[in-house]
Write a protein that binds this DNA or RNA. Sequence first.
DNA 1: TAATAGATTGACTAATCAGTCGATATTTAA
DNA 2: TTAAATATCGACTGATTAGTCAATCTATTA
Lengths: 192, 192
Amino acid sequence: MDKEKKILDTALKLFVEFGFHGTPTSKIAKDAGVANGTLFHYFSTKETLIKELYVSIKNELNQILASQANPTDSIKEAFRKLYFTTINWALVNQDKFYYIQQVHFSPHLAQIPEEVLHEQSKMHITFIEKAKASGDIKIMPNELLYTLVNSQIMGIYQYVLTQPTDQQQDSIEQGFEMIWDLICSSQAKIYE
Amino acid sequence: MDKEKKILDTALKLFVEFGFHGTPTSKIAKDAGVANGTLFHYFSTKETLIKELYVSIKNELNQILASQANPTDSIKEAFRKLYFTTINWALVNQDKFYYIQQVHFSPHLAQIPEEVLHEQSKMHITFIEKAKASGDIKIMPNELLYTLVNSQIMGIYQYVLTQPTDQQQDSIEQGFEMIWDLICSSQAKIYE
DNA sequence: TAATAGATTGACTAATCAGTCGATATTTAA
DNA sequence: TTAAATATCGACTGATTAGTCAATCTATTA
């Protein structure tokens, strides 16, 4: 297996379990089955490793979301896909989803260039603008809409985690109706 | 000034800015104006300091919320107070609010005993049960309600942070209408 | 006053860890 | 086949840091 990838995988597992501080690079290398120096051959510093792991995970999710997009979908359908795909991806990749938050609430986030972060949310912002233009969505600032949807997804995800597997999809569905109700314009609702 | 409190205040500031790893105990002691040994007199380990800081902050917020509670308030009014007080407290105490999330997405959370965490959310859970019994709130699991409200508060808070001060209260108000709309029973809505 | 307990100090240490480096192996390209 | 480039190794180091400790100071109490 590709050693660079092995290092990333191992780092993810250890960072999530023991935190950044609690994970020495030597342990990452050892668990990944590579020499100490090899880790620094691929990632010049520990900080670089932390950042590149973050970016690779965000890219993975974004690529999956992009692959689902279908121009002929209605706004609601498109939004539904975004929501379901994200939550289900998070359920299958709990470590990765957790790691995103872990970086988000750490000083490492400030080390990631603004343009990289912007690149990550670009797709969502474009979608939001399209949705608003369609009139299916309440008039509100883009930022607010983005933040609300994000936090709702976080909330539902966290709740679903506490549930038995066979009830999860129902809850996700309910969560979708709620958030859609929250953001769709009442006008659109009437004619729905 | 009380040295123990000075240490906690300094630790908060440094942890938020530089993270747990990036903040040596020696720097906390120095910035707090106490000797190295004094820090360990009050907090036997760095881990203890991290945990006690978390608990003290949560307690502070909970006490403020409890002091606002008024038994004669309607459910909506009581919920409104909870929501407004939390967000406004968060705006005034951004470091503390951030620190709560920082601990939440770190391995340190697992070090805090279940009973302490439960104690922290007890008030909210009691309120949720009262609200549900009143019929003003949609029928849904306590956990879901709790998580949804929490994440909605996080979302609104984060959005409000990006806004100029003079528009913040309006946004918080709008956010309240949204979340109330999300959780109040349609039956109660009709007779409102 | 004398005695006890707690608070405070800062130099010190044992351990850890991020990152280096020179040597060796492997792959690629000419 | 040869040469250059890249990958891999792991012992090593310089710096850092959590936590200790014996000594001193301060407050309380009998």
